[in-house]
Design a binder for these strands. Sequence first.
DNA 1: ACGATTATTCGATAAATATCGAATAATCGT
DNA 2: ACGATTATTCGATATTTATCGAATAATCGT
Lengths: 122, 122
Amino acid sequence: MNEIVLPDPPWTVAALSALAHEHRLAAFRLLIEAGPAGLNAGELANSIALAPSSLTFHLQALLHAGLITQRRASRHVIYAADFAAMNGLIGYLVQNCCGRDVGCTPACNPIPDTRRWEQKSA
Amino acid sequence: MNEIVLPDPPWTVAALSALAHEHRLAAFRLLIEAGPAGLNAGELANSIALAPSSLTFHLQALLHAGLITQRRASRHVIYAADFAAMNGLIGYLVQNCCGRDVGCTPACNPIPDTRRWEQKSA
DNA sequence: ACGATTATTCGATAAATATCGAATAATCGT
DNA sequence: ACGATTATTCGATATTTATCGAATAATCGT
């Protein structure tokens, strides 16, 4: 079983900042919903009703925090949620910002009923 | 058993913003560590090495988000973490930003081995 | 009541964030 | 190779955030 490596505070601040905005939180939720397949920039801009250049700005923040990934597919650039990273953020919050009697540690996973969350080992 | 009422996105953004800063995250972690007894403004300003007026500024953000409470004790103003609120934030993240296969829902609690977290019913 | 202690409010200022349109880059179809 | 599609970068600008010292408020001891 893999050790769970908790992120450091600077990363945590970056990750929290990345989610701490109406449009970015909306984008991230859409990507979570979309699962590993992800969504392209156009679909996101359309769903959130934001100028393409503004959306790019926000996606950079999520990318920089490592909460989403980016890949190219022909003319499209596809973004997808990084479930392991979100796992790490929640793990940090639970262990550092939630008191000591927590009861359990949740694990994010895109696929129902399949337990295969990898944790990056340092 | 009380229903767990999830916070709405605007509150979530406020709460994430409140935590998304080096000094505020540090302050909040100190308050979590301190438990219900809390810490006064001076102790916090001292620990974080921040001008009193700057600290107040940050505590307002945490207060506004409902993540901490404020009470007066003689000359001191004592701040304490609101565990139920943090519970709500983590609950929101787990349920909305973490995929569907989560496995469990953590519950924040200041006192080890005592299960008495109240949830505000709407 | 008065000086000392503790904390907040108030200005002023510097820095970071968010927004958009126009220009540029990358890729596709044909 | 060329026009069309998709997305990012670049400027410009408005707003918000963060910081601190000085002034104000609240409370304590005596």
